[in-house]
Computed example of a mutant assay.
Amino acid sequence: MNTHQYRTIDIDVDGGKLRVAVWEPLDSTQLEGDPPVSDVVLIHGVTASHLAWPFVVDLLPGVRVIAPDLRGRGASNSLVGAAGMKAHASDLEATLDALHIDQALVVGHSMGGFVAVTFAHLHPDRVSRLVLVDGGLPLDVPVGMDTDEMVASILGPTAARLSMRFATTAEYFDFWRRHPAFTDAWTPELEAYLEYDLVADGGGRLRPATSYETTADDTVDMNIGNALSDAIAQLSHPTRLLTVELGLQNEPPGLYAPEHLARVLQNLPAVQHERLKEFNHYTIVMSPGGAARVAAVVQQELSVQMDAAR
């Protein structure tokens, strides 16, 4: 069942235009005395786009959903200037301003979780609650790595793909069909996401929209930059964290090994954590089953938010 009407807009930000998707709920007709439509911002991962989210959106009826292509990704890949967590947070502020949204529940997946935490720190009045999906809290990254080593350690083949070129969309699909994360999770929605990811390389071939340089800059910033450490140290928003036991290659223990995450959460007693067994880093949002778990948490947080506002 179609629950939303989808559109995209381009918002002026530092360095150009930010592409933002808006899913308006089809049942959003407001009667006098009705509570306002809830707003949820969904922030995608390091090499993704807003089209990572349709499965989650479909399970949020009555909710207005806003999801940007972060600068350097998707249709925002021509933005000039440095990325980094603070730049993404500024772009989110501009997005809410342009849509006349005072405050929203913010959900971040993977790198989007780090952006969400930074945004909540820098613009606390614009965020009601946080939902972090396999991201947002410090990763277990060995000290002393250079940029390329850090990117390879965290992202592995995901980073290598950014330098690849493809003759056709079908060839890109074939590349992803061999990916272990999607062996049992190939869908039309995934194909739409992958097709959207491709841009012309200027030489008659196709490449992923996200550049390696942008990915490297953001990966370094979210792991050893000051923006995240400052935000984590002062995390005050109600926060739910979902992690999964399988990583980017469908391998255990995932991005957050239990021992490491336990050490991190010792200093964050207000963060409510749940670990899910049956999904990997991608399918927690890009499969019907994973999206159902994420959407259920979002709905719970919206319900708490609404009760508090009464």
Rank of each mutant, 00 (worst) to 15 (best):
N2H: 07
N2G: 08
N2W: 00
Q5G: 05
Y6S: 15
Y6L: 15
I11D: 08
D12A: 15
D12S: 12
G16R: 07
R19N: 15
A21E: 09
A21Q: 01
V22H: 10
E24T: 14
P25G: 06
L26Y: 00
S28D: 14
T29E: 14
T29I: 12
L31D: 12
E32I: 13
G33C: 08
P35S: 01
P36L: 05
V37N: 02
S38C: 07
D39S: 13
D39Q: 14
V40L: 02
V41A: 08
H44V: 10
L51S: 01
L51T: 00
W53E: 13
W53H: 11
F55C: 01
V56P: 07
V57D: 02
V57M: 11
L60V: 06
G62V: 08
R64F: 00
I66T: 00
A67T: 09
P68H: 04
G72P: 06
R73D: 04
R73N: 12
A75V: 02
S76R: 03
N77R: 15
L79F: 08
A82F: 14
A83S: 13
M85S: 08
M85Q: 14
A87F: 05
L92W: 02
T95D: 10
L96K: 08
D97N: 15
A98K: 09
L105M: 12
L105K: 04
L105E: 03
V107K: 05
S110V: 06
S110F: 05
M111E: 10
G112N: 06
V115H: 00
V117A: 11
T118A: 15
F119E: 12
R129H: 11
V131R: 03
V133G: 11
G135T: 07
L137Y: 08
L139P: 02
G144N: 09
M145W: 04
M145D: 01
D146L: 09
D148I: 14
D148F: 04
E149R: 10
M150G: 00
I154F: 01
P157Q: 08
L162M: 14
R165M: 04
A167Q: 08
T169M: 03
A170G: 10
A170P: 03
E171Q: 09
D174E: 13
F175W: 11
H179M: 06
P180M: 14
A181M: 11
F182C: 00
T183M: 14
T187D: 08
Y193M: 14
L194V: 02
L194R: 05
L198E: 04
L198C: 03
V199W: 01
T210Y: 06
S211D: 14
E213P: 04
E213S: 13
E213M: 06
A216C: 11
D217W: 00
T219Y: 04
V220N: 13
V220D: 02
N223T: 15
N223M: 13
A227C: 07
L228C: 11
I232L: 10
Q234W: 07
Q234F: 05
S236V: 05
H237V: 03
P238F: 09
L241T: 00
P252A: 14
L255Q: 06
Y256K: 08
A257P: 07
H260Y: 06
V264A: 04
Q266V: 13
N267L: 14
P269W: 09
P269Y: 06
P269T: 02
P269M: 10
H273A: 03
E278P: 09
H281P: 02
H281T: 04
Y282S: 06
M286E: 12
G289Q: 12
A291R: 07
V297K: 01
V297T: 14
Q305E: 15
Q305V: 03
Q305P: 00
D307V: 10
